[in-house]
């Protein structure tokens, strides 16, 4: 974590590692991606060090506020990834800025996505965020149920994209695991 803090840019925003080349923090390729910021924040909040990244937090909030994520981010293909990882961030700590400041806005933003088009992963993420907000999202669950494949899994959905080559990466196991959780979330 101390190493990560060295990767804060002049705007105070923690910069990304490059997933697809597995060079995690590569100072030669400074990139910023909101989802990566959220995941770094999650780690910091979990260990009570969230305030060390207050400018990154503020930027993430602005992105949510202005819906800057609607066309996906640099590495993540669709808006729900951002919302899903934000939801994980909120669960990482009971810090008031997460629960009193960020959570009400996330609730608003996920509500306005209900019923929007999306693949199985996007739908599952949306349903799971709704569940955390106390909302039972039946609309998207109906669509998700129809997308189950004959082999019991859900079809491949792209999660990451390699920004320069535009190669997309996904994992059916992950889609399926999230879909199961989403359906259970609506069943309860």
């Amino acid at each position: 974590m101390d190493e990560m803090i060295k990767y804060i840019n002049s705007d105070g925003i923690v910069q990304a590692w490059h997933h697809l080349t597995s060079t995690y923090f590569d100072r030669n390729r400074p990139r910023i991606d909101p989802v990566v910021c959220v995941n770094v924040l999650t780690l910091f909040y979990r260990y009570g060090r969230g305030t060390q990244l207050s400018q990154t937090f503020q930027w993430v909030y602005q992105i949510l506020y202005y819906r800057a994520y609607l066309d996906g981010t640099r590495y993540y293909c669709y808006p729900e990834s951002f919302l899903y990882f934000l939801n994980r961030l909120i669960a990482s700590s009971d810090s008031p800025e997460l629960h009193r400041y960020l959570k009400p806005l996330l609730l608003e933003r996920v509500l306005e996505r209900i019923g929007a088009s999306g693949d199985a992963m996007a739908l599952a993420m949306r349903i799971l965020v709704c569940k955390s907000m106390g909302i039972r999202n039946e609309v998207d669950a109906r669509s998700l149920l129809a997308l189950q494949c004959e082999d019991g899994g859900w079809e491949l959905c792209w999660m990451f994209q390699h920004p320069s080559t535009k190669t997309k990466v996904g994992n059916r196991g992950l889609n399926t695991a999230l879909a199961i959780n989403a359906i259970n979330a609506v069943k309860e």
């Binding site: 899994g153 491949l156 190669t167 196991g173 879909a179």
Partner: peptide, 27 residues
């Protein structure tokens, strides 16, 4: 299948059948 089967049970069976082999795929 999706209407008659139990979606969660079928999904779990898929995960178990493919466990340790849930590789990521790129296009």
């Amino acid at each position: 299948r999706n209407l008659v089967g139990d979606p969660v049970k079928r999904g779990k069976e898929f995960l178990e059948m493919n466990s340790k082999n849930l590789k990521s795929t790129s296009d």
